[in-house]
Design a protein around this nucleic acid. Structure first.
Lengths: 140, 140
DNA sequence: CTACATCCTCTAGCGACTAGAGGTGCAAGA
DNA sequence: TCTTGCACCTCTAGTCGCTAGAGGATGTAG
């Protein structure tokens, strides 16, 4: 059997080496066996787990949510209601964040368009920042 | 002249009391004068500055960017090119973040829709997380 | 006078890493 | 054989922008 080093695991999963060790330290990844010279030796299943974690992190799930998703994955006979709830909660978060960012985008566009590239005392960027009342979408 | 306490300054600016002290500690706000009993005594200009900071934070500007914006505001004869550049950079960030979140939203919707509310081994939420190749928008 | 709110300083904690110090182990090239 | 250089190890501390809490002093209302 081939030994998978931490570097190889990192490369294959797309998780950085220190982050792999970090995940182990917080118990998200089981501590792998060690070689004679104390080097970590990973299994293919560890790579899948790391890829799972990475993907979930990319999707913005928090570590604790991922911990729950992983325990679900570990026991496939459970109901997936929890997984569904976590994903739905995350979807709602993302939708809210998008709405909020759209408002910010509009605000920033107004600021940037209004800037006549003159001196600061005529600059709309500074002016709008100083006076929230000038916001077209004050809901932030 | 009325003395403005930190609590009053916090209320009027919408910045929390410990955060006001924090802003002072990092030099974003000048240390105000003190009363006989060592309590901070703010000026109306401090309230405006706090409101400026708060608004900029709501728009997602980082503290260091705000520091620059504040030095620009302090000297209104400068060119506003820096302010414009900072706002434009922030606009680009926001636009990218929105695009990225839209992709995530699509991904999460697929996951949630695919969930048949059965057991985990048939759950698309877990499945998609485990295999990035199943993503409809793999650009994240 | 007694509550109770508000103020003060200081330190430590949050999440999710990231960076750096200081050291071991191993293989390949001169 | 040496040495160069890389990948690995552990441990601590730093990042950002606050937030929480300890422990104490002061201000205000009834």
């Amino acid at each position: 059997m081939k030994k998978i080093t931490i570097g190889e695991a990192a490369r294959q999963s797309g998780v950085k080496v220190p982050t792999v060790r970090y995940y182990e330290s917080i118990g998200l990844l089981a501590a792998p066996s060690r070689s004679e010279s104390n080097q970590r030796s990973f299994e293919p299943a560890d790579i899948s787990r790391l890829a799972f974690i990475r993907h979930a992190r990319e999707l913005g799930f928090e570590i604790e949510a991922i911990r729950t998703l992983l325990t679900l994955q570990d026991d496939p006979h459970q109901s997936c209601a929890s997984a569904d709830a976590i994903a739905k909660a995350r979807l709602i978060e993302v939708e809210q964040r998008i709405r909020s960012l759209m408002a910010l985008k509009a605000e920033l566009e107004t600021m940037v368009e209004g800037c006549g590239h003159g001196r600061v005392d005529q600059c709309r960027v500074i002016e709008v920042l100083a006076d929230h009342g000038q916001c077209t979408h004050p809901h932030h």
